[in-house]
Amino acid sequence: MLATSYLLALLAVLLAWPVPVALSRAQWPARSPFAAMVLWQSIALAGGLSMIGAMLVYGLSPLGDSLIGAIRRAVTIVLENEAPDELHFWHLFALSAAALLSVHLVFTLLLTYARIVAQRRRHRELLSLLSSPSGALERTWVINHPAPVAYCLPGGSRSVTVLSDGLMETLAPEELRAVVGHERAHLTQRHHLLLWAFEAWRSALPWLPTTRLAREAVNALVEMLADDVARRTVSDDVLVRAIALVAVGDVAGGEASAPGRGGGAAPGGGLVTGAFDTDGVDIAGRLSRLLTPRPPLGAGATGAVLAASLLLLAAPTVLLVAPGLV
């Protein structure tokens, strides 16, 4: 049990600093954003499980040779009101820390969700007053705004894409189609759920380098994924022009956003309006990726990344549940 806790602690340290730093500096995620997204999710889940698991296993180590057996012994102690003579100060401290961290993570996740829902509700109310349905585009609302604005507002069956009339006047029909395709990709691929989870993780553990790097990486990856969907219906040149024109409008107008960019509470937000601030998304990086495209990762490399993601999740799980493994 002690060896298991040490291994879990080592894995937690690796996933908290060197692994996410190395991944954030890598160039290949732009070639395969889906695989990179899976890997970032695995790092986050495995890191959290390792942190909590290391403390839990250490705290229960005097009660048995496996986590399951130790938990049974702990339940017996509680139900029969026995004195936990096997547990000393540091064991109780580790158990308390594991419980507090677990509650903190879950509470922050729920609190972030409640905040997002409230902000979206207020934003939807504003839209009902300041916008009108587009007659030409399904589930699209148009606001009276001179700057080019494009974003999506998730809400299940009530999800909508919001455009400004300034955007519709600025862009050519094919460029507008690229913007709409980009925004709808965010909705159909449920990118707001990914951003919600990583924003909650960042809020819960702001001191952890992984949380900051992961949120920045995920913000960039969802834009790449949405760009790739738009590229199926328009050429790269068209998409580049659309991103560039809206970005120029952003600088000139002050409130507009590039397709999918942003997350402020006011119109001109972006991917998940009223939820997250993703103004740090690298527009130049997106344009460079489209202007000088590199071939996607091969099947072997993609399979290796996905296998590594699976192993990251499996390692702490096996260490926790396999009796007498270490």
Results as ranks from 00 to 15, higher is better:
228 D>I: 03
194 L>N: 09
160 V>D: 04
300 G>H: 05
61 S>A: 15
317 T>I: 11
320 L>R: 06
24 S>E: 02
185 A>L: 06
106 V>H: 09
268 G>Y: 06
237 D>H: 13
104 H>Y: 07
271 L>R: 03
179 V>N: 01
186 H>G: 08
52 I>N: 01
207 W>T: 15
102 S>W: 08
47 G>F: 02
242 A>G: 11
175 E>P: 10
86 E>T: 05
142 V>F: 08
103 V>N: 00
79 L>G: 00
203 S>R: 15
169 E>C: 03
287 L>Y: 06
145 H>D: 10
286 R>I: 10
100 L>P: 01
51 M>W: 12
31 R>I: 01
246 V>F: 00
287 L>I: 15
301 A>D: 04
58 Y>T: 11
108 T>L: 04
77 I>E: 08
237 D>Q: 15
315 A>L: 10
313 L>E: 04
215 R>E: 15
311 L>F: 10
216 E>G: 14
293 P>S: 09
285 G>T: 05
8 L>C: 04
169 E>Y: 06
249 G>S: 11
181 G>N: 13
190 R>H: 13
146 P>W: 02
148 P>W: 04
166 G>D: 03
101 L>N: 02
160 V>R: 12
145 H>C: 08
264 G>V: 10
147 A>W: 03
194 L>W: 12
212 R>F: 07
36 A>F: 04
229 V>C: 08
12 A>H: 05
281 V>C: 05
28 W>A: 06
123 H>R: 04
300 G>F: 09
215 R>V: 09
322 A>W: 12
71 I>S: 11
223 E>V: 08
255 E>K: 14
325 L>G: 08
188 T>G: 00
322 A>G: 00
74 A>C: 09
210 T>N: 07
201 W>I: 02
133 P>E: 13
167 L>S: 02
286 R>T: 09
215 R>H: 14
219 N>Q: 12
204 A>E: 12
69 G>C: 01
99 A>H: 03
92 L>D: 07
21 V>Q: 11
35 A>E: 09
100 L>F: 11
132 S>C: 01
18 P>R: 03
196 W>T: 10
252 A>Q: 11
241 R>E: 14
312 L>W: 08
312 L>K: 06
7 L>M: 10
232 R>E: 14
145 H>K: 05
280 G>E: 13
64 G>F: 08
17 W>H: 04
74 A>T: 08
68 I>K: 02
108 T>F: 03
41 Q>C: 13
255 E>S: 15
57 V>S: 01
262 G>T: 02
25 R>D: 00
78 V>A: 13
232 R>V: 03
172 A>T: 14
